[in-house]
C-alpha cells in the first residue's frame, strides 16, 4: 500500500505532463516512424493502407544516388559551418573581451541574427544574393566588378547556404565562448602578463587551452544544429540547383510530402538518426578513451 502511495506521490506525479507529451506523443510518433520505415504505405480513400516491406525501403535508399549525395553534402555542410562559426565565434569573443567601448552594445547586437526567424534569415539573404534584385550585385556593379549568380550554380549555392548558416549561428557560438571566457580564472592570465607574455602568447597558451571544454561543447552543439538544418535552405535554394544543396532534411521532406513515398521517407529518417547516434557514440567513446589513464599517463602529472 505504501509503495503504491509513494508511486502516486507529488514528486512522481509532477512529471506526468512531461511524460504524456514527450514519451506519449513524441515516443509514439517515433514508433510510427520506425513502423513506417518497414512498411509500404499508400493512401486509399483518405485512409492509410499498410503492408509489411521488410528492408525494401532501406535497400531503395542504398540504390538512390540522391540519398547518398544528401548524406555526403550534409557532412560537408556540417563540417564547414562548424569550423567557420566556431572560429569566428572565438575571434569575436576575444575581440569583445578586449574592447572597451563596444563590449556592451556588441552583446545585444550580436544576439540579433540568432533570434531572427530562420525563414526571415533566408528571406534577408535572398534580398542580398538574388542575381536580379540582390544588393550584392548592385554593389559589385557599382565597383565595376563582375556580378555573381551564386544561387544559380551548384558550388555557389552550397557556398551561399554555408555563408548564411554561419551568419545566422555564429552569434550563438560567440555567446557561449564569451560566457566561458568571462568565467576564466584571471590569475593565470595575470601571471603570464607579469612574466612578459605578449597578448598573442596569452591567447595561444593560456586562454585557448582554458577555453577548450567550452569550445568542444560548442562544436558538438553546432554539429547537431547542422544536421537539423532545414528552414534556411528550404526558401533560399529549395535544395537546388540540380539538387546540389539537398541536405538530409530537405530530402526527407521532398520524399514524404511531394513524392508521397511515406515508407522511404520514414526509413531515411531512421537512417539519419542511426547515423547521428553512431557519430555521437563515436565522439563519446573517443572522449572516454582520451580521459582514461591508459592512453594518457601524462594527464595525472599535468593536473597536479
Amino acid at each position: 500500500m505504501t509503495a503504491y502511495r509513494r508511486l502516486f506521490a507529488f514528486s512522481n506525479l509532477s512529471t506526468l505532463p512531461f511524460l504524456v507529451l514527450v514519451i506519449g506523443i513524441a515516443g509514439y510518433s517515433w514508433v510510427q516512424v520506425v513502423v513506417m520505415a518497414f512498411s509500404h504505405l499508400r493512401i486509399e480513400a483518405g485512409q492509410f493502407v499498410w503492408s509489411a516491406a521488410g528492408w525494401d525501403n532501406f535497400i531503395a535508399i542504398m540504390n538512390n544516388p540522391l540519398a547518398r549525395y544528401s548524406i555526403a553534402v550534409t557532412a560537408v555542410f556540417v563540417a564547414a559551418t562548424v569550423i567557420l562559426s566556431v572560429a569566428i565565434g572565438i575571434g569575436l569573443a576575444l575581440l569583445v573581451e578586449r574592447s572597451r567601448r563596444l563590449a556592451r552594445v556588441s552583446q545585444i547586437i550580436l544576439l540579433w541574427p540568432a533570434i531572427v526567424a530562420p525563414v526571415v534569415v533566408s528571406l534577408i539573404w535572398l534580398l542580398i544574393l538574388s542575381p536580379n534584385i540582390g544588393v550584392l550585385n548592385k554593389l559589385l556593379e557599382t565597383l565595376f566588378l563582375p556580378s555573381q549568380d551564386w544561387l544559380g550554380t551548384e558550388i555557389g549555392a552550397l557556398f551561399a547556404i554555408i555563408l548564411v548558416d554561419v551568419w545566422h549561428w555564429t552569434p550563438v557560438t560567440f555567446l557561449m565562448i564569451y560566457t566561458a571566457l568571462c568565467g576564466l580564472d584571471g590569475e593565470a592570465i595575470e601571471a603570464a602578463r607579469c612574466d612578459g607574455a605578449s597578448e598573442w602568447q596569452v591567447i595561444r597558451h593560456i586562454k585557448l587551452p582554458m577555453l577548450m571544454p567550452a569550445i568542444l561543447g560548442t562544436v558538438f552543439i553546432r554539429a547537431v544544429m547542422g544536421v537539423k538544418a532545414f528552414d534556411e535552405m528550404y526558401l533560399l535554394t529549395t535544395g537546388g540547383p540540380n539538387n546540389a544543396t539537398t541536405l538530409v532534411s530537405l530530402h526527407i521532406r521532398d520524399v514524404f510530402f511531394d513524392q508521397l513515398n511515406y515508407g522511404y521517407g520514414s526509413a531515411f529518417s531512421v537512417l539519419t538518426v542511426v547515423l547521428l547516434s553512431l557519430a555521437i557514440a563515436l565522439v563519446l567513446a573517443i572522449r572516454a578513451l582520451r580521459r582514461s589513464r591508459f592512453l594518457n599517463p601524462m594527464r595525472e602529472a599535468n593536473s597536479q
Partner: peptide, 23 residues
C-alpha cells in the same frame, strides 16, 4: 525524464515529422 531531455534535442525535427504527421 532526464534521458529524454538529453536525447530529444539531438534528434533532427525532420526525422520526427513523418511520425507526428501520422499521429
Amino acid at each position: 525524464v532526464a534521458g529524454s531531455c538529453a536525447i530529444l534535442p539531438l534528434l533532427p525535427p525532420m526525422a520526427l515529422v513523418p511520425g507526428f504527421y501520422v499521429t
